[in-house]
């Protein structure tokens, strides 16, 4: 970790400068994490007065619990669906905007603002649209013979949360794909055009491979987003229902811990999720290293 060539000689000042950040980190990040790890190995008696060390018991139970295993599969499906949908949309729109000169800015503005819509608000908006009594989409779907009721139909509930979560994330992917596209040197596409490649071929043989760092980065960010930031979306639409159909891992941690008050299991779930985030972060940093070599 570099510093400047010369540094200020003060011995105490730097500690004072990092202190606020470190204090908050220790009290509100490290300490709770440590407690989660700790209580994932403990069992509290019903009155919360004494606790005994139970080793990996919570973890064992967790990975034998069909509800939890289902939640893992469901989360994976949700994450992949949202990532593919929102990245696909984002890329398509970014490619379209990057072809334009004069109207590019206007379109960008129209496409960027959903970033500022909170996940919970995105949930409410789509919930309203899919509302079975007065929603516009069930009405339209009924012409295709679809009987929409996400309160009873688990698949439809899943589609609802996927759509709501993807809708909000398109702008983010659009922005980064657009930046990535704009950094592809024009000389390369021109060279390919002279070599006889048409626009479609150019896109798949030149532009897309050059975008791969952006794509990889966005993949990580989107997985992160769907796994953790969509809590509000779920809470505003299906609350994990019906019958667990949209109960993804992060919602389950909350529901089991806060509503179900199962501290040990919830802690074990937290630890599993943390390990997952740590893994993702390392993946992301390998990407940063690769980008430096570019």
């Amino acid at each position: 970790m570099e510093t400047k060539r010369t540094t200020f000689p003060s011995k105490t000042l730097p500690y004072a400068l990092v202190m606020p950040q470190l204090l908050i980190t220790l009290v509100f990040f490290i300490w709770p994490t440590w407690q989660a790890v700790q209580s994932s190995f403990l069992r509290e008696d019903p009155f919360g007065l004494a606790s005994t060390f139970v080793g990996l018991l919570h973890y064992q139970r967790l990975f034998q619990d069909p509800l939890y295993l289902d939640a893992i599969g469901r989360t994976a499906l949700f994450a992949v669906a949202v990532t593919v949908l929102s990245m696909g949309m984002g890329l398509l729109l970014a490619v379209a905007v990057s072809r334009l000169v004069r109207s590019a800015n206007a379109y960008s503005t129209l496409l960027l603002w959903p970033y500022a819509v909170a996940p919970v608000v995105a949930g409410i908006l789509w919930w309203f649209m899919f509302n079975s009594s007065s929603g516009i989409l069930p009405y339209m779907l009924s012409f295709f013979g679809v009987d929409w009721n996400h309160k009873l139909n688990g698949t439809q509930a899943m589609i609802l949360v996927i759509v709501a979560a993807s809708w909000k994330q398109v702008s983010y992917n659009f922005l980064f794909f657009l930046a990535g596209l704009q950094s592809v040197p024009q000389s390369l596409t021109e060279a390919a055009a002279i070599d006889g490649a048409g626009p479609v071929k150019r896109f798949f043989t030149i532009v897309l491979p050059l975008l791969s760092p952006t794509t990889f980065f966005l993949f990580i960010v989107n997985v992160n987003y769907t796994m953790f930031d969509t809590f509000g979306t779920i809470d505003a639409t299906t609350q994990g229902g019906p019958n667990q159909a949209t109960n993804i891992l992060v919602y389950k941690v909350y529901a089991d811990g806060f509503i179900g008050l199962n501290l040990g299991s919830s802690s074990a779930q937290s630890v599993v999720l943390m390990l997952f985030v740590i893994g993702l972060t390392f993946l992301q940093f390998r990407y940063v290293e690769r980008r430096v070599q570019y």
Partner: peptide, 23 residues
């Protein structure tokens, strides 16, 4: 100090809500 700050990146509040709440 740098690593401690870095670690916060890996611990979103959503995954450790209960212990953070109790702190």
């Amino acid at each position: 100090a740098f690593w401690l700050i870095f670690i916060t990146l890996m611990l979103p509040v959503e995954v450790r809500i209960i212990p953070t709440y109790s702190v």
